[in-house]
Amino acid sequence: MNTLQPLSGVRVLDLSTLLPGPLATLLLAESGADVVKIERPGQGDEMRTYRPTLGEASANYAVLNRGKRAYAADLKNPAERDRVLELAAEADVVVEQFRPGVVDRLGLGYEHVRAVNPGVIYCSITGYGQHGPHVKRAAHDLNYLAETGLLGVVVDGAGNPPLPPTVLADIAAGTYPAVMNILLALRQRDATGKGCHLDIAMTRNLQLLTYGYFATHQGGGGWPIPGSELLTGGSPRYQVYATSDGRHVAVAALEQKFWERLAELLQLPEQYLDERGQESTVITAIADRIGARTADHWRKVFEGEDVCSVVVATFEEAVAAGLVDIDSGDRLTGEGFDVGTLPSPVDSDLRRPPGRLGYPALDPLPDGPVWPGR
Rank of each mutant, 00 (worst) to 15 (best):
T333S: 05
L362G: 13
H140S: 03
P165S: 13
C196I: 12
R276L: 05
A139N: 10
D338L: 14
D367I: 05
L168F: 05
A158H: 08
A252M: 14
Q188K: 08
E39Q: 08
G233C: 15
L28T: 06
P20H: 10
G9Q: 04
F315K: 06
D363Q: 09
L85V: 07
D338R: 11
H297T: 04
A24D: 10
P226F: 01
G21F: 08
Y144W: 09
G358E: 09
R66N: 11
A201M: 14
G336Y: 02
G21L: 12
D306Q: 08
L209H: 07
P269V: 05
E270N: 07
P164A: 07
M47Q: 14
P236I: 13
T17R: 10
T210Q: 14
S31Q: 09
D245Y: 11
V346E: 00
Q5V: 13
L262W: 12
T175Q: 01
A158C: 12
D92S: 03
L145Y: 01
V282E: 00
A158R: 10
N117R: 09
V103N: 13
R48S: 15
E270G: 12
A33F: 01
K257I: 13
R105V: 12
P52H: 03
T126R: 02
E270W: 02
A29C: 09
A139I: 03
S348C: 13
G222S: 11
M47G: 09
Y110R: 05
F214V: 04
R66F: 11
Y272K: 01
E316D: 15
Y213T: 03
